[in-house]
Amino acid sequence: MAEYERSRTMPALPEQVFDRAADVGRFDAWLPGELHVHAEEPPAVTVHEDQGDRDTAAQLRTERDQMRIEWGTREQGGYAGWLQVAGIGSGASEVTVHLSFFDDRHDPGERAACDALDSSLRRLEQQVRLGTEHMSG
């Protein structure tokens, strides 16, 4: 089993960050570019991976009162992950994303996983900034 985790501070209230992160219709704006999530009957989703042109049955749960999103594969149990938003004062938040790969066939390796997590967190921060600028402007 392999596990990877990254965190990033964002200049917005935790509720604003969570709302942006948890909006399934906007996942493409911050997830790695090759992954696309299609909502089905909650909590079911399908994750399409461009690289292998394959769909994976997954589930997605959002817990707004805990500022947490959890996901994972439904049938194979190959991977799971979570995103946690925490307020750190002064209108800022820390976002942590964690991935667990239970099947080596799903594990992209440490470098690729950490690069994808860092890139996703940067993209999420950009989306949060755009959302907060739009709200204040």
Rank of each mutant, 00 (worst) to 15 (best):
M1L: 12
M10T: 02
P11D: 15
A12N: 02
L13C: 06
L13G: 09
E15C: 01
R20T: 13
G25L: 06
G25D: 09
R26D: 07
F27P: 04
F27I: 00
D28V: 10
W30D: 01
E34Q: 10
V37G: 03
A39C: 05
P42N: 09
P42Q: 03
A44C: 00
V45N: 07
V47E: 01
E49D: 13
Q59P: 03
L60I: 04
R61C: 00
T62F: 02
E63S: 09
D65K: 03
M67V: 00
M67D: 07
R68I: 05
I69H: 02
W71V: 03
T73F: 05
E75W: 00
Q76V: 11
G77A: 05
G77H: 00
G77P: 06
Y79K: 04
A80K: 08
Q84C: 03
V85Q: 11
V85M: 12
G87P: 04
I88K: 03
G89D: 08
G89E: 06
G89W: 05
A92M: 11
V97C: 01
F102H: 15
D104K: 11
R105F: 12
H106P: 06
D107E: 07
P108R: 11
E110K: 13
R111M: 15
A112I: 14
A116N: 10
L121G: 02
E125R: 14
T132K: 06
H134G: 00
